[in-house]
Every structure is written in structure tokens, then in C-alpha cells.
Simulated scan of single mutants.
Amino acid sequence: MTKNRATTAPDGKPTPVSGEQAKGEQAKRLHSAVIADELEAEIIDGRLAPGTRLDEQALTERFGVSRTPVREALHELASRALAERVPYRGVLVAEITRERVDALFETMGEIEATCGRLAAERMTVSERAALEDLHQTMSRLAEAGKERDYELTNTAFHTAIFEGTHNLELIEVANALRLKLAPFRKSQLKATERMQRSNEEHAAILAAIIDRDGRKAEKALRRHLMSAAKAVLAKMA
């Protein structure tokens, strides 16, 4: 027997949603995420030039899906500032300049430095232990050259530091900026040498946080973001 799940109707009353419907929604989200990731990579790599129109119909045919996941993917690209909606022209690939990337990393560096300082002062023992576990996992992934898994764990590592501040406003700001910078941070980790260097930088960050040394954690995170920025900007040269 298929169990129903409740959602909220316009009148505020719950309406049942079947298991099959829930699976369908999950599939749509999965499709949109795959489409967004593929287009993101093409934009970052320069395969989709600035000003290129991202036509919904063409994309539905290319990916073999309906318009809904394509629209969701385009919305996601716009939220990452990789595309923009232009009146009467549709969704266009945004221009990515060195100046913009530099500004994003500079801002993120300061935000993460603040998060690192506060996390070093405020994290609980269990939170510090969990952060250490994430670093150990990343060490194994870096050694094995598992780029995708490393990138996902890397996101979890930085998110744990944000949450370790126990400051909801700062966490919200840090996560919003992380989403904008994520495509660039992801691209620089594709090189094995950079992935291993990133892991070494994480070791310094972790040590400072475990030692409750806020200033040292602040400095380590600022340097970490500067190192990532150099790797990304070098590819844009």
C-alpha cells in the first residue's frame, strides 16, 4: 500500500501527496541539479560564452526532459550569478571577469576568516571532533584523487565551520556567498596538486580551531581563500 504525505494547500489545509508523486518531485529536482551542474561547468570552462542565450526549448531537447527541470536549472544558475534574466531576451550567460572573481574571493575570505575565529572560540567538543573526522575523510579522498567526493566533503567542512559560530545571521550570509563562489571553488579542485594543497591548508585551519586559537584560525582561513583565488585566477589568465 502506498503511503501518502501531506502538503499544504492554498487554504492552509494539508492535502495528501502520494508516494509516487513524491518520487516524481524528487526526480525533477535531480534532473534540474544535473542540468544546472552541466551548464555551470560549460560556463566556467568558457564553452558557453557570455551573452549566449540559454533557450528553454533547446535545453529540453538536449537533456530529454520537460520544461520544469530546465526552468529550475536556469533559476539556479541565476542565483549563482552565472546567468541573468534580460527583458525580451530571456536567460543569458553572465560575463565572468577576473575583477568579479577577485572580489568574490576577497569577500568570502573575510567572511570565512570571521567564521573561523568565532568557531575556534565557540565550537563544542563534539563539533570539533566532527570537523576533525571530516578532515580525515578528505585526507583519504585527496590521497585517492577522488575529486568529486573531496569537493562534497570540502563543502561540509566549511559549512561546519560556519555553523560552529552559532551565529544564525553570519551563517546565512556565509552560505549565500558560498553558493555564488561554489562553481569557482569546485573548478580549482579538479587539479590533484591543488586538492592536496587544499587539504594541507585544512590541516592548519583544523589545528587552530582545536587549539581554540581564534586569531590563528582567522589567518589560516584567509590564506586558504587567497590560495584558492590564485588557482582560479591563474586558469583565467
Score class of each variant (00 low, 15 high):
3 K>E: 15
7 T>I: 15
10 P>S: 04
12 G>M: 04
13 K>H: 13
18 S>N: 05
22 A>M: 14
24 G>W: 14
27 A>K: 15
28 K>V: 14
28 K>M: 15
34 V>L: 15
38 E>K: 13
38 E>Q: 13
39 L>A: 03
40 E>Q: 08
40 E>D: 13
44 I>R: 11
44 I>L: 00
47 R>Y: 09
47 R>I: 02
54 L>E: 00
56 E>G: 12
57 Q>W: 13
58 A>E: 12
61 E>R: 14
65 V>T: 14
72 E>W: 07
76 E>Q: 05
79 S>I: 07
81 A>T: 14
84 E>T: 14
92 L>K: 01
93 V>F: 04
93 V>L: 05
99 E>I: 08
100 R>H: 12
103 A>Y: 04
104 L>Q: 08
104 L>W: 05
105 F>E: 06
109 G>W: 06
117 R>D: 05
118 L>E: 05
118 L>N: 07
119 A>L: 07
120 A>I: 06
124 T>F: 05
127 E>T: 02
129 A>T: 14
131 L>K: 09
133 D>I: 14
134 L>M: 00
134 L>R: 04
139 S>Y: 10
140 R>H: 13
141 L>D: 00
142 A>L: 00
148 R>N: 11
150 Y>N: 01
157 F>N: 03
158 H>K: 09
159 T>W: 00
163 E>F: 00
163 E>N: 04
169 E>C: 12
169 E>Q: 14
170 L>I: 03
172 E>S: 09
172 E>Y: 12
172 E>M: 09
174 A>H: 07
174 A>G: 07
175 N>V: 11
176 A>F: 10
180 K>L: 10
182 A>T: 05
185 R>D: 04
185 R>F: 05
186 K>S: 12
187 S>P: 01
187 S>M: 02
190 K>N: 04
190 K>G: 09
194 R>C: 12
197 R>D: 09
197 R>S: 06
200 E>Y: 04
201 E>M: 01
201 E>G: 04
205 I>E: 11
206 L>F: 01
211 D>K: 10
213 D>V: 01
214 G>H: 07
216 K>R: 14
219 K>W: 01
220 A>I: 11
221 L>C: 05
222 R>C: 11
222 R>D: 01
226 M>G: 15
228 A>S: 08
228 A>T: 02
230 K>A: 15
231 A>S: 12
235 K>N: 14
235 K>A: 14
236 M>W: 10
